[in-house]
């Protein structure tokens, strides 16, 4: 088992006729992901990377039985692309696009409330269940099948952390994205990892800004039966500055790294201070 995606996930690529969409459609297919088609309005009928292109998600779902989508369209079109997936009752939509206005995300997630679709992202690297499926942009070589679940607000730091799980490998690695308002948060992933028999330990990679880490810590303390390791990036970040990610900002003195580290420690989460410590600390807790 794994979480969110596996061998049975049937994926369409929105924006498949663009440079990034085409590149990653091919890369995901080569990884073994069950990519069944692509969508670009007005370009239906074409083929890209050996995959049929459709004009709408609705049509793609009808013809391919797709149940998940990954979005590579510019931020100004990403909102509409997400609505389309939610309206078509997909199980999962992964929004890679960076730069979606926060209020647009508020509205998309409001629309998704009570419907079937889970939104992952935006501004995220996607999700990979090593050896099964990759619905994202991560370099496949950094991941291998195993028993550690990883959930992170970052991209490349996630690759670094995953590669440090060493011989344990990963069940699923989820990049939830660096924006202030995102579809899937730490707790959504922790719940699934906790219930997934294949996952034996969990690594949570947080960063400054917001209170998602604090809420995750409370959840872990109350519910989690598996060992959890935590890492917080941004100990040296100055207040009031946006550290690359739109959501990585210490505002009004809150959202700092020490606050989050303290919350982790109070919840019994093993705090690691550098990626190199992850392997040894996993060993001590597994």
């Amino acid at each position: 088992m794994s979480i969110l995606v596996d061998k049975n996930t049937r994926v369409i690529v929105q924006g498949i006729t663009g440079r990034d969409g085409a590149f990653h459609a091919k890369a995901m297919k080569e990884y073994g992901t069950n990519v069944v088609g692509g969508v670009t309005p007005g370009k239906g009928g074409q083929m890209v990377a050996g995959l049929p292109v459709f004009d709408s998600v609705e049509e793609a779902v009808k013809k391919t039985g797709a149940n998940a989508s990954i979005i590579f369209v510019p931020a100004s079109f990403a909102t509409d692309a997400m609505y389309e997936c939610i309206a078509s009752d997909l199980d999962l939509v992964v929004c890679i696009s960076e730069g979606v206005p926060t209020m647009d995300m508020v509205k998309v997630l409001d629309y998704a409330r009570g419907r079937k679709t889970r939104v992952l992202g935006p501004n995220c690297p996607g999700v990979i269940s090593p050896g099964k499926a990759k619905v994202g942009i991560m370099p496949a070589a950094s991941f291998k099948p195993g028993c550690v679940g990883v959930v992170s607000r970052s991209g490349t730091l996630t690759y670094e952390v995953a590669s440090q799980t060493g011989e344990f490998g990963q069940s699923t690695v989820v990049g939830i994205g660096g924006d202030p308002v995102i579809g899937t948060n730490f707790i959504d992933c922790l719940e699934r990892f906790n219930a997934d028999p294949e996952t034996k330990a969990i690594v949570v990679v947080g960063e400054i800004g917001g209170t998602d880490e604090e809420r995750a810590a409370e959840w872990v303390k109350a519910n989690c039966r598996k060992p959890v390791l935590g890492f917080i990036a941004g100990q040296t970040a100055p207040p009031g500055k946006r550290m690359g990610h739109a959501g990585a900002i210490i505002s009004g003195g809150s959202g700092t790294a020490p606050e989050k580290t303290k919350a982790f420690e109070a919840a019994g989460i093993t705090v690691v201070h550098e990626p190199d410590e992850i392997g040894p600390k996993l060993k001590s807790r597994l």
């Binding site: 400054i208 890492f231 040296t236 550290m243």
Partner: peptide
């Protein structure tokens, strides 16, 4: 010089941890 905001912050933090001071954040 780092690629990715999270890794860039983690790199700055590690510089501090090993007794240095980061001169910048750069993604």
């Amino acid at each position: 010089v780092v690629n990715g905001a999270g890794l860039a912050m983690a790199t700055m933090d590690l510089i501090k941890r090993y007794g240095g001071e980061p001169a910048n954040f750069l993604d």
